[in-house]
Design a protein around this nucleic acid. Structure first.
Length: 193
DNA sequence: TGCCAGGCCCTCTTTAGGGCCTT
């Protein structure tokens, strides 16, 4: 069965196109409905974290000053994720930072990038909303640590992804659920699943 | 001075606008 790399960035803002920089990354590997490995690190991109973001994430300027350099951390993260399909909650956000990091290392992404938020809109349309925290409470998923820290959010997204894999496989009566099938479900109109 | 994202989705739509979601 396919191994998926579920990732989450904490950053200084919304987009690298406007100067935002990653401050922390976590990647959780999922295979056969189980978390099999984890990677997490703060990183120092010689950037400044606005007070609002310090308050939101708990990651301070003092913390990242002591962290390893961003290029080293992202090199390790890219190696850890290998060529596994990537998954993130609202992937359009994390994909920009991931692809920017690849560009800085003169690499290009080869694998697909799935979005757990788009999938959850199709699989759990009855949820109050599709924020990660709401889905964790609504589905009573395991949660360790605090929201808005990379490893906690990546693990919560991994548990959400596993739950959605089970739901899709049951609903569609599939022997095996491939990444390509997940992409098809993700692109369906809400209500069609 | 004030504003500055962007992909996706829905609807009072498609020659558009606004909400959701991520930090």
């Amino acid at each position: 069965m396919t191994t998926y790399a579920i990732l989450d960035f904490e950053t200084t803002g919304m987009s690298p196109d406007h100067g935002a920089c990653p401050t922390e990354i976590a990647i959780v590997l999922v295979k056969d409905g189980q978390i099999t490995d984890r990677y997490q690190s703060l990183m120092n991109g010689n950037t400044w974290i606005p007070p609002f973001i310090e308050s939101l994430t708990g990651i301070t300027n003092a913390m990242i000053r002591k962290a390893p350099p961003m290029n080293k951390v992202m090199g390790e993260a890219i190696e850890f994720a290998s060529d596994h399909p990537l998954v993130a909650h609202n992937a359009s956000f994390d994909r920009k930072f991931w692809d920017e990091a690849l560009t800085q290392q003169s690499k290009q992404r080869q694998q697909d990038f799935l979005c757990s938020m788009l999938l959850s809109r199709r699989v759990f349309p009855e949820a109050p909303n599709h924020q990660l925290g709401t889905l964790v409470r609504f589905l009573q998923l395991p949660m360790s640590g605090q929201f808005h820290r990379a490893l906690s959010d990546a693990q919560a997204t991994a548990h959400l992804f596993i739950r959605m894999q089970q739901a899709i496989q049951t609903k569609l009566n599939l022997q095996e659920l491939t990444c390509q099938k997940l992409l098809v479900v993700q692109k369906q109109k809400i209500g069609a699943f």
